[in-house]
Amino acid sequence: MTVVMGIETSCDETGVGFVEDGVLLGDALASSMDEHARFGGVVPEIAARAHLQAMVPTVRAALDKAGLGLDDVGAVAVTAGPGLATALHVGVAAAKSYALALGVPLYGVHHLAGHAAADTLEHGSLPDRSVALIVSGGHTSLLFVRDLVRTPIVHLSDTFDDAAGEAFDKVARLIGLPYPGGPSIDRAAREGNAGAVAFPRPLTAPGDPELGFSFSGLKTAVARYVEKHPDTDVNDVAASFQEAVADVLTTKALRACRREEVDTLVVVGGVAANSRIRALAQERCDTAGVELRIPPMRLCTDNGAMIAAIGDLLVRDGAKPSGLEFSAVPTIELQQAQLC
C-alpha cells in the first residue's frame, strides 16, 4: 500500500493531506482568506505569495497530524488545474520537487475530481453511477460520474455566468455582510424569513436550459430589491436569497439524477457547506428516493486530503505517473481525473 501526499493550491487555501488505501491519515490547511477580506474576493498575487510562505510549513503540519515522516510517502498528487494560475504554479512546483527529491511518482490531477473524491474518504467508494453537483466559489457544475478514475466524466451543465459561491460573496457585499459571503449569509439567514422576498429562480422557465445555472441575474435582483427597500431586514434578504439558490441547485441536481437514471447524488465544494443547501438537498433526495452523499464540512471546502484521495485512487488503479514536465492548467473542464 502506498501513502499518497496531496497538495492543493488552486485558490486561497494551501492544503496538504495524506491518504492510504482510501483512508485519510491526516491533513493540514493554511488559508490566506483574511488577507483577501478587504478586497471582497481572492487577489491572485496575494494568494500566491501566501502559498509560497505556507507550503513547507503546511507539509510539516500535515505530516505531524498523520504521524508520518517524508520517508513514508510513496506518491505525490497535486492540483494541476483549474484555478488561479499564480497559485497553481506554487503547488505544482512544490509537488514536483517533493516527488523528485523523494524519488516517488507524481500525479497532476483535476481539482474538481478531488472534490468528488473527498466524499469517498467519508462514505467509501462511489457507486457505479452517480451525479455530482460541484458548487464552490469558482464552479457550479453537474457531472455524470461512473468510475472516477477510469471512465471519462460527463459534463451535464455549468453556470453561464457567476458560480454559486461568487453569488454568495457578491450578495453579502450588497447587504453589508462580511466576506466570505457563504458562511455570513448562512448565519444571517438563520435569523431571517426565507419566504420574505420572492427572488427569481433563474433558468427554471419552460424552454430554459434544463440543467444550466445562472446566478448573475439573481444577484442583480437582490441589488434592485435592497435599493428599493433600504430599510429592509438584512436577515430576510439573506434567507430569501439563500432559499432561491438552494431551490435552483437542488431542483436541477435531482432533475439530472432522473435524466441519468442514477440513485446517488454527491454534493461537494465549498458551497456544499451551506446548511440550507444541505437540508433542502436531503429533503428532496428523500422524497425522490435518491441517496444523498455530502462530505463533512471540512472536506467540502478546498483541502489537501481530497487531492490525496484522488491520487490514491489513481495509484491503486495503476495509472501512469505524470512526469516532471507538465504545466499548471488554469482553465480546463473536468473530463479526466488525471490531467497530465
Binding site: E45, R49, L52, V59, S97, Y98
Partner: peptide, 20 residues
C-alpha cells in the same frame, strides 16, 4: 518576475525539506 521566482523558491524549499 514573481511567478517564475516563486517556482524556484518553492522548489528549493521543498527539495531541502524532502532531503533534510
Amino acid at each position: 518576475p514573481y511567478t517564475g521566482l516563486r517556482v524556484g523558491l518553492v522548489t528549493a524549499a521543498a527539495f531541502a525539506h524532502a532531503r533534510g
